[in-house]
Structure formats: C-alpha cells, structure tokens
Amino acid sequence: MTWNLPNILTVLRLAAAPGVAIMFLYFARPWADWFALVLFVSAAITDWFDGYLARAWKQESRFGAMLDPIADKAMVVIALTVITGFQGMNPWILLPATVILFREVFVSGLREFLGAQAGTLKVTKLAKWKTTAQMVSIAVLFATGVFQHEFLDRVQGMDAAAIGAVLDGEVEDAVGLSFYFHAEALTWWIGTILLWIAAALTALTGWDYFSKALPFLRDAPRGRT
C-alpha cells in the first residue's frame, strides 16, 4: 500500500462515510444536518480530486483502485440510510433509495462472484454520471434537513395562525421564516427529482454490468455419456 495523496484522500473519504451518521448521534439538529452536509460535500469533492491527482501525478495504484469504489458505495449507502430515516420513510425517497441500495449490493456480489473475470465490469461514463447524480441528490436532501430544522427552531412558541400570518406576508418576517420554508420545499423537490434520476441511471448501469457478466454465469454444457 502506497501512502500518496490520492490514496490518503480516498481513505479519508471512506472514514467520512460513517461520520455522516455519527453527526446525528452526538449533535442536535440543525447542527447535525449542517455538519453532515459539510462532511458529505467535502468527501464527495475528494472523489474527483483523488482520481484526477492519481492520473495527473501517475500515482495510480491497486490499493486506490480497490478502495475508491468501496468508499463511494459506503458514502452513498450510509447517507441514504440516514436520509430515509429522517424523511420518515417517505415513499418518494424510499423507492429510489431502495433501487440504488439493491443495485450496489447486487453489483458488488457480482464482482465478488466473477473473481478474476471482474475486470469485465469496468466503470463506464454512465456509471460516473450515476455516482455524480447520487452525490448531488444526497447533498441537496441533506440541505433540506438543514432548512427544515432552521425553520422549526424559529417557529418555537408560535401557533399555526402566527406562522401563517408571517408566511402570508401579513406580519413582518423578522427571523427569515419565509426563506427557510421555501428553501426546504425547493431543496426537497430538487433533491427528490435528482434522486429518481440517480436511481434510473443506477438501474441502467446495473443492467449493463449484468449483461456483460451473463456469459460468465452460464453453466458449461455437460458432455455426452
């Protein structure tokens, strides 16, 4: 194992994956949402940098090639688990998240089964777009949690009529309720749409990998007796 900068960034990204969930164990919301968002975005940025630096500096290694997809999958799986939980098992989130999680487990199992032939399942450009869509959608949905709890913090002690009056413009919005209310709704819709797009790309790449692996899954014909 070579401890160059690209590999260090990959290891840090892998360590950040459980850190996203841990934020919600030790911090109250919205601070947990803020920390998880910053940690996730920072880790996602390293996903581009470590690959770029490894190629530019000619520091590509077997260790990095092995760990990079594991770090990506760990980030996505853990982040989606957290988001599904704090979204209250919303079917608009749960369904695409299930497709993504199923595909990641399926392809990982497929690679393990193929062993030496796993090289046939090379990462495609579509798979890279899939990963980008996953990362962006998850980051936007973490932002939804930030805006939601910033809004809830500001309406403590207010009844529904008072909140409605502020949102309708009848009362001065001194604490930015309207901004956080609309920001929550906007990021939820954008994040959800992007998550469905990511799920569609995930399913397509999963089918592509399965099609490429199919010749290796067929049993050899039995000889005549």
Rank of each mutant, 00 (worst) to 15 (best):
K122E: 01
F147T: 00
T124R: 11
V123R: 05
G176F: 09
V155K: 05
A139T: 00
K130Q: 12
D168K: 13
A174H: 11
D173Y: 04
A139N: 03
A133Y: 03
A160C: 15
E172C: 13
L121M: 05
I138G: 01
V155P: 03
R154F: 07
W129C: 07
V146R: 05
M135F: 01
M135E: 02
A161W: 04
T132E: 10
D173V: 09
F151R: 06
Q148M: 06
Q156K: 15
S178H: 09
G169A: 00
A165K: 09
V146A: 12
Q156V: 14
Q134A: 10
V140M: 11
V136H: 09
A118I: 01
Q148E: 08
K128T: 02
A127V: 02
K128V: 03
T144A: 15
L167K: 10
W129L: 09
Q134I: 07
V123W: 05
T144I: 11
G164F: 10
W129S: 03
T124D: 12
V140P: 11
M135V: 00
L141G: 02
A165Y: 02
L177M: 13
W129Y: 05
W129A: 08
G145M: 13
V175P: 03
F179N: 06
I138Q: 01
D153M: 14
M158N: 07
T132Y: 07
